[in-house]
Design a protein around this nucleic acid. Structure first.
Length: 521
RNA sequence: GUCCCCAUCGUCUAGCGGUUAGGACACCGCCCUUUCAAGGCGGAGAUCACGGGUUCAAAUCCCGUUGGGGAUGCCA
C-alpha cells in the first residue's frame, strides 16, 4: 500500500432508493473504521441522481440508521463540511463544469443515438458476437456537424472518448490485489444524459476528486465500474484514489440478500430489539477478522485495528443465529441502567404499565400501538428505576433481543392478577393436595416481613419440608400461580418484584380455583 | 456471448511452503439446577471444490476445469 502522505478521506455514498440495508451498513462500518483508524475523515454523500427511485424519506432514514449504529460522519448532509454540498442533486453545476473541462480537452463527444437505437444495436451485437459496448458511431460524426445538430436542439448525451491507443486498464485493489481489464472491454460510456444530469460513473469521479477522497471502499458490485472510472479520472487529469472492494453479503440460501430472507434493513433490526453495538460487531466480523479468534470486539478496538488487508474476498452468508447470540452477549454485558434505557421504547410501544398489565395482548403477542399513555409509562420508569433495573438480572441470560424480553416479563406488570396458561395449570398446578400446599404457601409468605428474594426463598423452602414432599412441585405450582406459566424467569426474584400483596392475591386466585376443582371431584 | 472476481467444518473465519488444519455460531452429550436459560466440561463436524503441475514438502505458489458472483443501462 502506498504511503498515506495526506490525511485519509473516505466516503459512504448510498443512493436513497431504499433504507439502509445490512450490506450498506457494513460498507459504512468499514469506511468509518478505516477513517478512525487513520485519523481521517468519514464523509457521507447521497447519490440521488436517479430521480425515479430516490426519495428524501429514504435519505432521512439512512441517516437515522447510520446514527443509530453510531457511525457519525465528519462531513455530509446536516453536518456540513468544506467540500459540499453532499447531495448529488445539489451539485449539478459542478458536473456541468467538469463536462466543460472534458469538452475543452476533447475527451468527450456528443452522441445522438436514442435509447431505442442503442437497445437494438446491443441486442444484435449480443446475439452475433461478443458484445463489448457502444459501437462509437457518433464518435465519427464531424465536429462541425455535431455542433450544428446540438444547435438545432437535437437531444444528445455526452460520451467519454476512450483513448484508442491506451493499453489495458489495471489497478491495485486493496483487498483483491491486481486487477486488469482489457481496454477492448471498455466502451465510450455515457457521462451526461440527454437531460443534462450526470450518470453514476461520472458523478462519482467528479465528487470523489473534488471531495479529495483518498480511498474508495465500496461494494463488490462496483469492481467492474472501476476501470471505467479510472478512464474518467484520466480524462479529468486528476489523481486516482485507492480502491478497496468488499464482497457481497448473501442470504442463508447463498443468494443475494433480499426481502424473502426476512429482515434486511438496519431499521428492522432496530425494531426487533437488537443493539447497535451488537450489529456493528457482527457486521464488522462478517468479512473482516482481527485475528481469527476474537468474536466480541468493541467499536474502539475496531477503530484502532481495522485494516483493509484483513478483509475477506469471499462473499459471506448472513447468519441470524450468530447475530442473535452476539446480541445476547451484549445484553448480558450491558449495565442494568443501559438496559432500562434500551427497554423503555419497547415498554412504551407495548403499553406495559406496572399494576395495569400489558395494555395490548393479542393472544400472547404484544404489538405496537398501545393504549397506555407513553408519558405515564416513562414517568413510572423514572420513579421506579431500581425496580426496572432488576428486570435485567431476570432476563439477561434468557433473552436474545429486546423483543424476546417483552413476552418474558409481561407477568410482572399484571398487578394482583396474571393470565394463567391452561397447559401449565394442567401440568403443574393441578397436582395432588395442591390446595393444601397453597394454604401453607400463603401462610408462610404472609409471615415474611422483609420482602426480599432470599427471605422469600427461605419461607418457601420450609413448605415442602414441613409437608414432607419434594420442593420442585411446590415451586412449579407457585410459579404457575404467580407467573402464569411453568416457564419463567427466576421465581424468588420475580416474587420480590411483583410485591407481597400482589403475590398473595395471585396465590389466592389459584387456591380458590383449586378449591372449586376439588369440590367438584 | 465477452470480460472481471471468488472457492478451508452447515455458517462466519484463522492459516500466507513443513500445524494432530485453530477459534466462534449452530448441533449432540454430560455436569450444574425449582422451570427456562446461562455457565462449565466434552463430542461430532473440513479427503482445504476438482484435476494437473512446481517443490524434499502445497490448504498455502502456477495452469486448467467445475461451481458461484459481478459487469456488459441515458440504474446506482
Amino acid at each position: 500500500m502506498s504511503e498515506l502522505q495526506e490525511s485519509v478521506r473516505v466516503r459512504f455514498a448510498p443512493s436513497p432508493t431504499g433504507n439502509l440495508h445490512i450490506g450498506g451498513a457494513r460498507t459504512a462500518i468499514y469506511n468509518w473504521a478505516f477513517a478512525r483508524r487513520h485519523g481521517g475523515s468519514f464523509i457521507l454523500r447521497i447519490e440521488d441522481t436517479d430521480p425515479e427511485r430516490s426519495t428524501p424519506e429514504n435519505t432521512a432514514q439512512i441517516m437515522r440508521s447510520l446514527r443509530w449504529l453510531g457511525l457519525e460522519w465528519d462531513e455530509g448532509p446536516e453536518v456540513g463540511g468544506a467540500f459540499g454540498p453532499y447531495l448529488q442533486t445539489e451539485r449539478n453545476s459542478t458536473y456541468g463544469e467538469a463536462l466543460e473541462q472534458l469538452k475543452q480537452r476533447d475527451a468527450v463527444y456528443p452522441c445522438f443515438c436514442t435509447p431505442e437505437e442503442l437497445a437494438v444495436k446491443r441486442e444484435q451485437a449480443m446475439s452475433e458476437k461478443a458484445y463489448a459496448g457502444y459501437d462509437r458511431s457518433c464518435r465519427r460524426i464531424p465536429v462541425a456537424q455535431a455542433q450544428a445538430r446540438i444547435a438545432a436542439g437535437e437531444p444528445h448525451t455526452w460520451r467519454l472518448k476512450v483513448p484508442l491507443d491506451r493499453g489495458d486498464v489495471a489497478f491495485e485493489d486493496e483487498v483483491y490485489g491486481l486487477t486488469t481489464v482489457p481496454i477492448t472491454q471498455l466502451d465510450d460510456l455515457i457521462l451526461v444524459r440527454s437531460d443534462g444530469t450526470p450518470t453514476y460513473n461520472f458523478a462519482v469521479c467528479v465528487d470523489d476528486t473534488l471531495m479529495r477522497i483518498t480511498h474508495v471502499i465500496r461494494g463488490d458490485d462496483h469492481m467492474s465500474n472501476t476501470p471505467k472510472q479510472i478512464l474518467i479520472y484520466e480524462a479529468l487529469g486528476t489523481r486516482l484514489p485507492s480502491f478497496a472492494h468488499l464482497s457481497m453479503i448473501l442470504g442463508s440460501d447463498g443468494k443475494r440478500l433480499s426481502k424473502r430472507h426476512g429482515a434486511t434493513s438496519v431499521e428492522a433490526y432496530q425494531n426487533e430489539g437488537y443493539f447497535p453495538e451488537a450489529l456493528v460487531n457482527y457486521l464488522a466480523l462478517l468479512g473482516w477478522s482481527l485475528d481469527g479468534e476474537t468474536t466480541i470486539i468493541s467499536a474502539e478496538t475496531l477503530c484502532a485495528s481495522f485494516s483493509l488487508d484483513r478483509v475477506s474476498k469471499n462473499p459471506a452468508i448472513f447468519d441470524e443465529a450468530k447475530l442473535a447470540w452476539m446480541n445476547q452477549a451484549y445484553l448480558k454485558a450491558m449495565g442494568a441502567e443501559a438496559f432500562v434505557e434500551a427497554l423503555e421504547p419497547f415498554l412504551v410501544d407495548c403499553g406495559f404499565m406496572r399494576g395495569k398489565g400489558p395494555t395490548v395482548n393479542l393472544g400472547g403477542a404484544y404489538t405496537l400501538g398501545a393504549l397506555a399513555d407513553p408519558a405515564a409509562i416513562k414517568a413510572d420508569i423514572a420513579e421506579n428505576k431500581a425496580w426496572y433495573e432488576a428486570i435485567h438480572g431476570l432476563i439477561a441470560e434468557r433473552a436474545k433481543t429486546m423483543t424476546d424480553v417483552i413476552p418474558m416479563i409481561a407477568y410482572l406488570f399484571g398487578g394482583d392478577t396474571v393470565e394463567l396458561d391452561p397447559v401449565s395449570m394442567e401440568k403443574c398446578l393441578f397436582i395432588d393436595g395442591a390446595s393444601g400446599i397453597f394454604d401453607s404457601v400463603i401462610l408462610a409468605l404472609e409471615e415474611v416481613c422483609d420482602w426480599k428474594g432470599a427471605k422469600i426463598e427461605n419461607a418457601l423452602r420450609q413448605v415442602p419440608e414441613k409437608l414432607g414432599i419434594k420442593a420442585k412441585p411446590v415451586f412449579q405450582a407457585v410459579r404457575v400461580a404467580v407467573c402464569g406459566t411453568m416457564v419463567s424467569p427466576p421465581l424468588f426474584e420475580s416474587l420480590e418484584l411483583i410485591g407481597k400483596d400482589d403475590v398473595l392475591s395471585r396465590l389466592k386466585v389459584s387456591r380458590d380455583i383449586l378449591g372449586w376443582r376439588e369440590s367438584f371431584s
